[in-house]
Structure formats: structure tokens, C-alpha cells
Amino acid sequence: MGQEPRVLVIIPAYNEAENIVHVVNHMMEVAPQYDYLVINDGSTDDTPNLCRRENFHYLDLSINMGIGGAVQAGYIYARKYDYDIAVQVDGDGQHDIAYLDKLLEPIDSGEADVVIGSRFLEKEGFQSSVTRRMGINILSALIWLVTGRRIMDVTSGYRAVNKMFIKIYSEDYPMDYPEPEAIVAAIMHLGRVKEVPVRMRAREGGISSITFKKSIYYMIKVTLAILICRMGYGVRRGKREDLQKPRGKEQGK
């Protein structure tokens, strides 16, 4: 590539008035060399006003579309303005910006197409509740079953992707609870998915989008979504279309 890749940090925010200013300021402090884009997903609280007042770079979605639609808007933006790498970071301060470079490194070196920040690789920081970890393990096993790849933290929304996947995700991104499905899509597009250990924090304010009551619905919905997503690709796997950089044969899948 030669010169420095252009990186866009996508920060979806739905009713994150308590966190968003802190998250963005922290981001500008720790990683000022990267562009960021807050995506206000039709928030009903002060989030859009704060973004305007603080002069943030932000997209203002006029309708609440859910995390998937918001993040996809970020990918469309990244594609439109020709970014090389896009990173998703939650707007609630759960994801530590300090790990950004660790996420970018495997993409920079051309070693991976999709890098997932995983809190379970080194078991540091906030580990989530026992029941939730159980749910994540089940989904992880399911993804392993249908794709043959073992990804530990399948619900992590801390993720970096290269240009090839900016294009793929801008065209088609899963909607309601998108993370596990997005991983299946990445594997099925023959993306090289890599997990790197990150430390996550408990939420700094506000409430998680997944309440305990919703978790049953979540499991059923996501299980179905993974199966349907996998079915959509059939037995035959697609061919990689990125021929910009010559590369050796794919090892494994």
C-alpha cells in the first residue's frame, strides 16, 4: 500500500448522551491520527445535540434503525469516502480505544481481513455475567459447527475490517443483533478472521441493549439468523474478489 492506510472509527450511538462525549474525546486523545464518525441512531435523548455542540463528526439517522442499520451507515460512509480500514467501537465506552492499534495491526500487515476484539482470549477485564457467557459459548459452538471456525467472542462489537469487507458490509449487513451473523458472513466470504485479546469495561452509564428479559428471544433469533445466514451461502463458497494485492494460496479457510 505504501502510505498510511486511512482508518475510520465507526461509533454507533443510540441514547448515549451520558457516554458519547467522553468516548469521542477519549478517542481523539488516544488516537488522534484516525478519523472517527459517530452515528446517532435516531436517539431520543440529547445525543444529537451533544454531537452538534461538540462539533463532532457525526451522521444523524432520522429513524432509529437498530445497531445493524447504524453500523452499516458507517460502512457505506467508509466506502463512499474510500477508507482502507473501518473499526467499529461501541458508543457506550465498553471498548477500550487503547486496543485500537492491536486490532489494526493484523490488517495492516495483510494477515487478516476481519479482526475481532475478544475479551475471552486472555480473560482480562470485564468478563460479562455467567449466564451471558454461557449464551456466547453456545453461539460460538454453533458458528464453529456451521463454518468450521472457532471464534470465542462472537458477540463482540469491537471489530476492524479491511477494504474488502467495508464493501461487503456496506452492501449487506445483518440487522437486529448483527455481530454473530456478521462473523458467519465474513467466514463465508472467505475472509481471514482473526481474534485479538482486548480488555473490555463494564458499561460506563446507560443500560445495555440486551436486558435479561430479552435474552431468550435473543438466543432464538440469533440461532435462527446464523443458520439462515449460513444457508444463504450454500455448500459452494465464493471466490475472493480482492486481486489488488497478489497473495499466496488460501491456507485452510
Binding site: 444523524d60 439517522l61 432520522s62 451507515a73
Partner: peptide
């Protein structure tokens, strides 16, 4: 449409 609108808005 919403996504494109937001990008144009920016």
C-alpha cells in the same frame, strides 16, 4: 434511504 440521507446531511 435513511443511511444515504444521513450521509448527505453531514
Amino acid at each position: 434511504l435513511t443511511q444515504e440521507l444521513a450521509i448527505l446531511d453531514k
